[in-house]
């Protein structure tokens, strides 16, 4: 464990908490892509099937929290606050993300076993899972500040992981190319948003795309 990974994980945790609190406090999931949240639930489920392989108490706890929080989020969006779900703007075709991620996991993986292919699928799937949400923001042309904070925390997490991988490569000679390439793709997808966040949201303005 190094500082980059720890802060990355905390940023990831913070993102999930921000989203749950936002939905719970406002009793609304307006502006949130239910499709992205379903993809994240799929990501955590397929990745953490390795839960019986004990790494550390920290890992086990975080995995359980991520899985539970992702299902809770999906439940809030599709059941409890269904009436506030903005499905007219959540129109990204997720099959274009799920199927290629799965086929790629079958082709490029560390080991052709069920657990390993599902782990690899989760890595590829995670790298693009935010696209329905970013698509929704671009479609409506704006995002609430709290949604922006959520996206910033979620995007920062993988960027911090890249620093963690550089650190681990230099200190432990440890590296995982699949995670690194997917992590870079994931971070690049947020760049446009990061720019808007820094230039607008941090200066107190609403995140609004030029018409």
């Amino acid at each position: 464990m190094n500082i980059f990974r720890l802060v990355g994980d905390l940023s990831h945790l913070l993102a999930i908490i921000i989203l749950l609190l936002k939905i719970w406090k406002t009793r609304s999931c307006a502006g949130i892509s239910g499709k992205s949240q379903i993809l994240f639930a799929i990501v955590y489920t397929s990745r953490y099937l390795d839960l019986p392989n004990f790494v550390s108490m920290y890992n086990t706890l975080m995995k359980i929290v991520f899985i539970a929080a992702s299902y809770a989020t999906v439940y809030l969006i599709y059941m409890k606050f269904k009436a506030t779900y903005d499905h007219n703007h959540d129109t990204f075709r997720v099959e274009f993300l799920v199927l290629p991620s799965f086929v790629l996991a079958l082709l490029i993986n560390h080991d052709f076993t069920v657990l390993e292919v599902l782990w690899t699928f989760s890595i590829y799937m995670e790298s693009v899972a935010i696209l329905p949400q970013l698509f929704m923001v671009s479609k409506t042309g704006e995002a609430e500040s709290i949604t922006s904070h959520y996206l910033f925390a979620l995007g920062s997490y993988r960027a911090l992981y890249i620093l963690n991988w550089i650190y681990r490569y230099t200190t432990e000679d440890h590296y995982d190319l699949i995670a690194i390439v997917a992590g870079i793709v994931q971070t690049v997808l947020y760049c446009d948003f990061f720019y808007l966040y820094i230039t607008k949201v941090l200066k107190g303005k609403k995140l609004q795309l030029p018409a």
Binding site: D9, H12, V55, M62, K63, F66, E116, W119, D176
Partner: peptide, 10 residues
């Protein structure tokens, strides 16, 4: 098992 070792991150 190197795979378990490999997936020691979240």
């Amino acid at each position: 098992n190197f795979l378990i070792d490999l997936h020691d991150e979240l």
